[in-house]
Design a protein around this nucleic acid. Structure first.
Lengths: 222, 222
DNA sequence: GCCTTAACTGGCCGGCCGGTCGATAAATTA
DNA sequence: TAATTTATCGACCGGCCGGCCAGTTAAGGC
């Protein structure tokens, strides 16, 4: 870290970004006055305009900054050279851990859906392309059902992961305080892996034995 | 329909509710001034306060009104006395059609996640309870895997359905205008049914034959 | 036909909020 | 060290928006 100077524009920028990210995600951008951001960041409101131009540009920069990290994680994931099934498995796990570790990511995702705007669609597009490619490989190798659209597969597992965290708070309210939400979360992760790879339908014992050979319930932990 | 009187409080209320629902869902509650709602509804701003008290109460009433319909549809679904697998199948289809037919429902769902508040958790809770019960029956009958938490099953399929519509607009932008999104949507529905019941993993021909007997891809249409 | 009730109107106000401006002082450069 | 740049501040402005109020007119009970 650089030494603390009495004037430190970079630190100021960062302070504003951090404060705004907290408040925006907690209450929604339009509910948060810039004055409040300034107070939390320990600076004057004018500085926000000095460094970012407008409130909207500030919000955009926050989104961009956060999604950079998001895409970095996702890209790392897809560039490992494992087999398709293992890759899918690890990818789901990693996505789950990513959202689990930082509540902000979930809020960002939620806001994307109500705002509709997409600052970095291109990068996301790229991720989808790579993912689809990997699944096609798996289909050619006879590991993944050929009658499924690869895009459906990706969207299905993204959905199952994200929705857990989106509805987590609501679920807590529903179940009351005494429930062990952590255990339930792990169980949910295991379950969606099972559903995703093998479906909910009961299978005969010989079928079950066959699928045990593949990596359905691994022990890898983050 | 009652005859149009020069003063018709019910019609006025309804006009305000409809106008506000449109604008709120399109731009977000905080982006829409009450004056705009009034103009669209063909009344004065004061009438909004006269009938609803405040802007926030208006928004709450809109949410409540819409979710009533939502719960009605869902409840009808779960009260049919079919077998667990058939019920699950029909339930997924119906949920899909419900969101497909009215874009507003999707927007409402999205807003729930960013606002966090829940005006009618009790009713939702009830739906979950019934759903869980049905799945337990299926597990006892050996139709549904016993190692899965029923809640996970419900959440997984709700997720796969809702997320499609939440990301539909973004997907259109990603793919460009020329794509046949309708066909893709139907394919996605088929695919998540397949994934949900049988998983993405390729199965041997004997296994596949066994699962064909069960209702994986039905022809029922809305 | 009166009288109470309530739907409805136009106008207005108080506050808040995003953004600007001029001034100041700390960094940077020459 | 002088000159330039720029980070920072406090004060302020113009507009908008939610809500209120005093008044008007229709509906409904008696």
């Amino acid at each position: 870290m650089t030494t603390r100077r009495r004037r430190d524009p970079e630190a100021t920028r960062a302070a504003i970004l951090d404060a705004a990210e907290d408040l925006f995600l907690a209450h929604g951008p339009s509910e948060v006055p810039t004055s409040r951001i300034a107070k939390l960041a320990g600076v004057t409101k004018s500085l926000i305009h000095h460094h970012f131009g407008s409130k909207e540009e500030l919000w955009n920069e926050i989104k961009q900054r956060h999604f950079e990290q998001y895409f970095k994680v996702q890209k790392e994931m897809l560039n490992s050279d494992e087999g398709p099934l293992e890759l899918l498995h690890r990818s789901i796990m990693a996505y789950f851990r990513f959202l689990q570790q930082d509540e902000r990511s979930v809020s960002f995702m939620s806001w994307r859906f109500v705002e509709g705007d997409e600052p970095c669609l291109a990068e996301e597009n790229e991720l989808f392309e790579v993912g689809i490619q990997r699944i096609l490989e798996g289909q050619e190798q006879g590991l993944i059902r050929r009658d499924l659209n690869p895009l459906s597969i990706i969207k299905a597992f993204l959905a199952m992961v994200l929705q857990w965290f989106q509805t987590k708070k609501l679920l807590c309210d529903m179940l009351g305080e005494e429930t062990d939400i952590e255990a339930m979360e792990e169980k949910y992760l295991q379950d969606i892996l099972t559903i995703f790879f093998d479906g909910v339908r009961e299978r005969s014992s010989t079928e079950a034995a066959a699928s045990e050979a593949a990596p359905a319930a691994g022990g890898a932990e983050a």
